[in-house]
Amino acid sequence: MTSAPPVMILGCGRSGTSIFGELFDGLDLYSYQSEPAFEAVLAADYNMPQAFKVPRESDLHPAKPGLSFPLDRFLEAAPGARLFWIVRHPLDAVCSLRIGIAKQWGHHPRPPDWQDWLARPLIAQCAHHWEFLNRAGYAQVRHGATLVRFEDMIADPTRFSATICKTLGIDPDANALHLAQWSNRVQNSNNRNFIEARTSRAYSRPDHKVRIDRWRENLTTEEVAAIWEIVGETALAMGYPRPDTE
């Protein structure tokens, strides 16, 4: 039996959920599952530390739009669970979402009106996905979730991982080797140390040199304006003012 709480990692796709989740794969006896069936979440042995990243949707367990699972059912099964919501700058996230959204809106959970957007430009579809999840999804957990930022994770993964451990009551020093290995993987650009999260590899495209501010490599001024029309209000609420495009 351990006092380490269950953990659920949430957020819009391509916002760092996968690499953040893999922080728990080897952390202080945590058992980690990426995108498990929600039935597996309910059946997990909570006598040991459990961590999950964005469970898959289930017809047996319908969810409110914006989440892939019924939050109240999870909290009943995992008392004392800690929720984390990771957010990424919308312009960078839109760039990264393009592959998955182009494949019949392959990122989940989908907004309820996703089919209505299929005739719109791809970047508009991606922007709608980011806006809906970070508004409707985050609204359901905001009073109990810890909000973390992709940019903070990339800028200083050592500090980021230590902060997460302390939030959970875990001694970072007791996990020093694992945390160092994880932190070494988290890079702003591709290099010999970078190892992408396993579930993210199919969604990568070699059209940028950096992860933070990659939109400056991928988007035109006109595309930025079109995206901001969709995400602007939610972006500002999440702490992202409109950037200077000059």
Rank of each mutant, 00 (worst) to 15 (best):
101 I>H: 06
97 L>G: 09
148 V>D: 06
84 F>G: 12
24 F>L: 11
60 L>V: 00
57 E>C: 09
80 G>P: 04
145 A>H: 14
150 F>I: 09
138 Y>G: 01
103 K>Y: 09
121 P>K: 05
91 L>R: 13
33 Q>P: 00
30 Y>I: 03
97 L>W: 02
111 P>W: 08
127 A>K: 12
81 A>Y: 03
148 V>A: 10
106 G>P: 05
142 R>E: 09
16 G>T: 04
92 D>V: 00
86 I>C: 14
26 G>K: 10
106 G>F: 06
39 E>G: 15
99 I>M: 03
63 A>G: 07
26 G>L: 06
44 A>Q: 05
124 A>C: 06
61 H>V: 05
57 E>D: 13
59 D>A: 15
147 L>Q: 14
49 P>W: 01
139 A>V: 04
35 E>I: 03
147 L>E: 01
140 Q>L: 06
41 V>W: 07
58 S>W: 02
42 L>R: 07
99 I>A: 06
77 A>L: 01
49 P>A: 02
102 A>S: 15
153 M>L: 15
100 G>T: 03
87 V>W: 11
76 E>V: 14
93 A>V: 11
82 R>F: 04
75 L>F: 01
24 F>H: 09
37 A>Y: 12
85 W>C: 13
101 I>A: 07
32 Y>I: 04
97 L>K: 10
152 D>E: 14
154 I>D: 01
142 R>Y: 02
122 L>Y: 11
83 L>N: 02
19 I>G: 02
39 E>L: 13
79 P>Q: 01
17 T>I: 04
95 C>V: 13
70 P>Q: 11
48 M>G: 03
33 Q>C: 03
90 P>M: 05
47 N>E: 15
